[in-house]
Simulated assay, not measured.
Amino acid sequence: MKHQNDIKLQNEQEIKLFETAKKRMTSFLKANYENISDITYKEKYDIDPMGGISVEGYLNKDPKQEFWGIYNKSMDEIGGSSVEAEKKAACEKEFCKY
């Protein structure tokens, strides 16, 4: 019984972490890239051994305009990312704050 409760609690924590990661990724994308009107997330994620969680999806209702990123919970930021979109001029050399 305790084991089942532990699994349920872990799943709830993962879902909460995934929702936080999606919010931070949304902020990251809008702050750093041009012409983002719509963000669609895939409902799958991976958690790495260091506690980071991946988020991925596509932009502007175009499945070819893919993105993915790793949310670093301890730093509350997107660590690594790949985005098929044009960066804002002010964010070319380093990512803008989000």
Rank of each mutant, 00 (worst) to 15 (best):
M1L: 13
K2H: 09
K2L: 14
H3C: 11
H3P: 04
Q4F: 12
Q4D: 13
N5M: 14
N5W: 13
I7N: 07
I7G: 04
K8M: 02
L9M: 06
Q10H: 13
Q10A: 13
Q10E: 13
Q10V: 08
N11K: 13
N11R: 12
N11P: 00
E12H: 03
E12N: 08
Q13M: 12
Q13I: 07
Q13V: 06
E14I: 10
I15F: 12
I15N: 14
L17C: 00
F18Y: 14
F18Q: 10
T20V: 15
T20S: 13
T20Q: 15
T20Y: 09
A21L: 00
A21N: 02
A21G: 01
K22S: 06
K23E: 12
M25R: 01
T26E: 10
F28G: 05
L29W: 03
L29T: 07
K30Y: 00
K30L: 00
A31F: 04
A31R: 06
A31M: 04
N32S: 04
Y33K: 01
Y33E: 01
Y33P: 01
Y33S: 02
E34T: 06
E34V: 05
N35P: 02
I36W: 00
S37A: 05
D38H: 15
I39Q: 03
T40M: 10
Y41P: 06
K42H: 14
K42N: 15
E43V: 03
E43T: 09
E43C: 03
E43W: 06
E43S: 11
K44A: 09
Y45T: 10
D46N: 14
D46H: 13
I47F: 03
I47Y: 01
I47S: 09
D48A: 11
D48W: 10
M50Y: 14
M50S: 14
G51Y: 07
G51P: 04
I53E: 00
S54K: 08
V55I: 05
G57V: 02
G57N: 09
G57D: 09
G57C: 06
Y58M: 08
L59W: 05
N60K: 07
N60S: 10
P63I: 05
P63Q: 04
K64L: 10
K64Y: 09
K64R: 08
K64A: 07
Q65I: 06
Q65K: 14
Q65A: 13
E66L: 06
E66A: 09
E66S: 08
E66T: 11
F67W: 04
F67M: 06
W68P: 11
G69L: 11
G69C: 12
I70Y: 14
I70P: 02
Y71S: 00
S74E: 04
M75H: 08
D76K: 04
D76L: 00
D76W: 00
D76R: 00
E77Q: 12
E77H: 08
E77N: 10
E77D: 04
I78E: 04
I78K: 10
G80R: 15
G80K: 15
S82R: 13
E84F: 09
E84T: 12
E84H: 10
E84I: 12
A85S: 13
A85P: 08
E86W: 05
E86K: 15
K87F: 02
K88Y: 07
A89G: 04
A90K: 15
A90M: 10
C91E: 03
C91Q: 03
K93F: 11
E94Q: 12
F95H: 07
C96Q: 02
C96Y: 03
K97L: 11
K97H: 05
